[in-house]
Design a protein around this nucleic acid. Structure first.
Lengths: 367, 367
DNA sequence: TTGTATGCGTTATCAC
DNA sequence: GTGATAACGCATACAA
């Protein structure tokens, strides 16, 4: 049943070129004069089992260091253990050329948190343009090389994720994702943040507020609208929602003035990829020659597009992308470890800005 | 030697939580009525070996699809002796908070090229602040888990890298790194690019040029100085090098005027982290009330700091960081595959800019 | 053309 | 406390 060591290995091609093979536990064992299993035990620092003599432990550790031993992640994982690798998968390039919608802020948090927990990161490039098997269903399968995986991007196919949750593979989506029962996610608490903005406007005396949003079904949008409505209710305000795909059509100078005459003293816009809602709102107010914040107050539910980030600084809130990335890693790590999951919502930070001020009491209309 | 299937498996704990097991090749084989090996062959679409009958292929494919078979990456990588992973190691955080000296531009190229070659990326966080084993010597050992590794950053310990080259572990340093015999690297061709800038100035009629550089021994600096001297020689110009740690001390209005009176009509500054040389040069020229490019021409050997990237756009060259990242991956991939190494130098792109113009012939001094 | 046998490096169990 | 030994799921010489 056994074969002489001298016999060429079967079922395997020789290693390409005479590259020095990575040391294996077996070689560490030989050098330390123990069995391979002992090496595995020693190196599994998991449990400080006293079942290993200090003498042996020392020898093994020394041998491992001398040989520069590094565990094979594939083997570890195959043997149903873990490999200290956390995957990061996005359906668009992780590092896009247009830094506009890049995941950089998230990755800062992801890297920091992963580092502090001793995880390395595997960036799965399967979905990058030109990537091998881009869009192919098996592209997602590769993430199983890691102990768990983070998913970023707005359009990760639900059915692919469903498989992971069914199998119990630790997966965390960055951004709320409720439609898939059982999928873990972390997200910004848009609802609360929006409610805070409404409360801020209420404190300033505004009684009638309008929300401008694009026609979109993304959770990020609906969360804001929910927060808006809850905010109105909580503060006893009235308001409306303008929901459209054609801002220019809807937000004309005439309508702005009409709304204002009707008692609307504050407008809030949701953040979108292009900043379209905010852009349209600002343009319309300007066209209507309404003074901000003298006659009307403006607020942005998120961060402004970079080209109009300052002057004026919009009242609103900032999405803590870094913290979100860190939270994602924390959640993923707890899933991997089987620990109870932490809070998935992270708070946004209120930004006072300069586009809101006391309501002009003379403009109060009927409610 | 064999054991009954009914017997509980040994050497293995039960799967945590009753998660559904994924189908394996063996089950596909059973359903298709073939052997596991055949399944493996069929699914290895790698080679369109005609060694499989269409009939069998069909059955296997059908069975695989019906079961929703997805290959286990850990297993295939274990069996294949490589894992399609390329490491990325930097001694500072890969995603620093200060985007100033971030590796983002490199990573864009790295990701693209890695994706197009079917590699995934492992970002080693060992060196990140707070990272487990930050700074520890064995932190670098972990990179061996990949098929090869990219190193970025200016201060990767030479002795650590020496080990990799000794073992034949594929390692590529981004940035010239000659002091370590045998270490592969890719770098921008600063010398040629600098020479081009000198040639440009020569064509404009300048005969006497001065180089301003910080007191630094980095290859990026010395390459530029070399290109500067070679450029002078090739064009038959004269010039000097101002090398100092204290720009303010050296670059005074008085000295600028003195140099100018002495026939210096063009100044070139090297690019540094802070943009100090360029900053100092611009300030000094302004203090000396010298017109640019009327009286003196200025050039920057690299890219300007973002706060003064425009107005005026410096004559000089841009470092193709994206391309450099891609080139690094190409080189690393060829090392991994044992193919001949490609060209390590990537060309910089000349940037005309607006800070250089025809030499003022009346100012020609003695050479 | 397909099946058989073996090994990849690791973990985990069981005897010693 | 330590050493055999059996999987993990897949790939591949080699036999049939």
């Amino acid at each position: 049943m056994e074969h002489p060591d001298a016999q060429p290995r079967r079922g395997r091609s020789v290693a390409p070129r005479g590259r020095a093979a990575r040391p294996r536990q077996a070689e560490v064992a030989r050098l330390a004069g123990v069995s391979q299993a002992t090496v595995s035990l020693v190196l599994a620092k998991k449990q400080k089992s006293i079942t290993i003599s200090d003498e042996t432990r020392r020898k093994v550790l020394a041998a491992a260091r001398e040989l520069g031993y590094v565990p094979d992640p594939a083997a570890s994982r195959l043997a149903a253990a873990h490999n200290n690798l956390l995957g990061v998968f996005s359906f668009t390039a992780t590092f896009p050329t247009e830094v506009q919608h890049s995941y950089y802020p998230f990755l800062v948090g992801v890297e920091q948190e992963a580092a502090s927990r001793g995880y390395d990161l595997v960036l799965f490039t399967g979905s990058s343009p030109g990537g091998a098997g881009a869009g192919a269903p098996e592209a997602l399968g590769r993430v199983r090389l890691a102990d768990g995986c983070l998913f970023l991007g707005r359009h990760i196919p639900t059915d692919q994720l469903r498989r992971f949750v069914a199998e119990g593979f630790p997966a965390v989506h960055i951004g709320r994702r409720d439609e898939l029962e059982g999928l873990s996610w972390v997200g910004a608490d848009y609802a609360s943040a929006t409610q805070d903005v409404i409360a801020h406007l209420a404190r300033l005396g505004h009684r009638r507020v309008m929300l401008v949003r694009e026609d979109d079904e993304a959770p990020a949008s609906t969360d804001r609208e929910r927060g808006f409505r809850e905010g109105l209710a909580a503060e006893g305000l009235t308001g409306e929602v303008v929901r459209t795909d054609d801002l220019a059509q809807e937000l004309t100078a005439a309508r702005m003035r009409a709304w204002h005459d009707n008692g609307v003293t504050a407008f809030v816009a949701e953040e979108t990829d292009t900043g379209g809602a905010w852009r349209g709102l600002v343009a319309a107010v300007r066209a209507a020659a309404l003074d901000v914040p003298g006659e009307v107050s403006l607020a942005l539910l998120g961060s402004p597009p970079s080209d109009l980030a300052a002057d004026p600084v919009p009242t609103g809130f900032d999405i803590p992308r870094r913290e979100l990335g860190a939270a994602a890693v924390r959640l993923l790590a707890s899933l991997v470890a089987g620990d109870p999951a932490p809070e998935p919502l992270v708070a946004c930070t209120f930004r006072p800005g300069t586009t809101s001020g006391p309501a002009n009491s003379t403009a109060q209309g009927v409610s």
